[in-house]
Amino acid sequence: MELLLVLLNDAFFSAIPAVGFAMLFNVPRRFLVFCAIAGSIGHCARTIMMRGGLPIEWSTFAAAAIIGVITIAFAKRHLAPPLLYAVAAIIPMIPGSYAYNTVIAIVQLTASQSLQPELLNSAVTNGLKTIFILGALSVGLAMPALVYYRTRPII
């Protein structure tokens, strides 16, 4: 029951950024709802996997691959390129606070007179998390094309 509430919360609040960013990318209006669906499913899948004990990088990778599969199904139905849905759908999983912490630590390191270990620690750990989550997102999204649609076009 508690898990269900968490998932509903996740689904709702990740559908909003998916639609918002889809509008920023000028996705046609009739496709906006599919961006929202893909975004919610991806974020919920990641939450479930992280609760199951998987590290955030691997769960992000798997969730991005799931989004890739779903958006290819949408693309086949509407005859539109899959990235049209997919990029907006992965936006809720962008590692925003990790990136923010990295940047702030680096700026503080620049301003300080001597090398402070806790700032360096924060910069490196948050920075590595940011880079690997971003890589997992984009490579995960490309997975269906790399594994299954090797020699033929998707649409």
Partner: peptide, 26 residues
């Protein structure tokens, strides 16, 4: 702190980044 981190997230260059990795992988 979270408010500050979230407000600038609208500047994330999502499309250039995904396109970049996707281009390089392919």
């Amino acid at each position: 702190r979270l408010a500050m981190a979230a407000a600038v997230l609208m500047l994330v260059p999502g499309f250039p980044m995904i396109n970049a990795i996707s281009d390089m992988v392919k």
